[in-house]
């Protein structure tokens, strides 16, 4: 008797969306951050077009504040897939005066990425950027479409989105406009981990427990890397931690954890009572921080 599991159905939907991107757009790219969601999207793209190569380059917006493990993983994956890698550098945007670096202890390049991203999209004339955002992550993302239209300023207009019915995706656009496409919109954090487990997808070591120099700020452990400025009262300690999400160092919270394999991580997530973005400093800036950044053109 045939059994349609939730992971099979989600996988099938995502592959369908990725193939629609390849069919409807001229210059798509995968927004690759090195986090588990963009890793899963890239893996699904591999499946969608096998035995042909993924027909889009991977685009990484590098804040210059990335964990070395993320960059190593990215380079190894690109080589394995035979994919093209394009890097947009936030440092370069700062150096050329496109953006101004934030000051203070909570300074982050998270928001600056938007300018670098939009500049890179324009430079390479990308007409669809595929991202790993999920609707369960954040309340503004809960209203996001699979095919999300962006105007010529790269902005999102959440009040007037195109209705999306059945599995018909409308990627028509005018010159200068582009789309963000989110193939794993319907996946939850748990689905992503279960899928990684089922498919045995390799992940950056940051997701598993390791010893790291870190410090506590506002109840959240952060990595004590050179790009972080510590307040006088903050003390660097060595702890056994892992990342639940991976972003820029300045906004990636670390979880005290002994989980060193996927089964343990899944158990840990099943028991947790805090969302994964609960550890993200970038979302805590205001009640609608994500929506505000998304409107400007953020991921």
């Amino acid at each position: 008797m045939y059994k349609l599991t939730h992971l099979k159905e989600l996988e099938s939907e995502s592959i369908y969306v990725l193939r629609e991107v390849a069919a409807q757009f001229e210059r798509p790219a995968i927004l690759f951050s090195g986090g588990k969601d963009s890793i899963v999207v890239t893996y699904l793209a591999y499946k969608a077009f096998y035995p042909a190569k993924i027909p889009f380059p991977l685009l990484h917006i590098d804040t210059g504040h990335n964990f070395q493990e993320t960059l190593d993983y990215r380079d190894a994956l690109v080589e394995k897939l035979g994919a093209q890698l394009i890097v947009g550098s936030v440092q370069e945007s700062i150096d050329t005066g496109r953006v101004k670096e934030e000051k203070g202890y909570n300074a982050s390049r998270n928001r600056l990425q938007t300018t670098t991203l939009l500049d890179t999209i324009e430079k390479y004339k990308f007409d669809a950027c595929i991202g790993g955002a999920r609707r369960d992550e954040e309340k503004a993302r809960a209203k996001e479409r699979f095919f999300s239209h962006r105007d010529e300023f790269g902005q999102w207009n959440p009040k007037n989105q195109r209705p999306e019915l059945w599995n018909i995706f409308n990627g028509r656009k005018n010159m200068g406009e582009h789309f963000r496409v989110f193939p794993i919109s319907n996946w939850t954090e748990m689905d992503v981990w279960q899928y990684i487990y089922q498919e045995n997808i390799p992940l950056p070591s940051l997701y598993f427990t390791h010893e790291r120099k870190c410090f506590l700020r506002d109840g959240q452990w952060l990595a004590a890397e050179p790009c972080m400025t510590l307040k006088p009262i903050e003390v660097v300690e060595t702890r056994r931690v892992r990342c639940r999400t991976i972003g820029d160092i300045t906004c990636t919270g670390l979880t005290i954890s002994e989980a060193n394999n996927l089964e343990d991580i899944i158990s840990e997530i099943a028991a947790t009572r805090v969302t994964e973005r609960g550890g993200r400093a970038d979302d805590k800036r205001s009640e609608t921080a994500m929506e505000d950044r998304k409107k400007e053109g953020y991921f």
């Binding site: 369960d136 309340k139 209203k143 959440p158 009040k159 939850t188």
Partner: peptide, 22 residues
Amino acid sequence: TDGLRAEREQGITIDVAYRYFA
């Protein structure tokens, strides 16, 4: 579910919201 700024300000729901549970 009413995640958008305009929705929260006006106390109305503008768009389809997708929610997940298991």
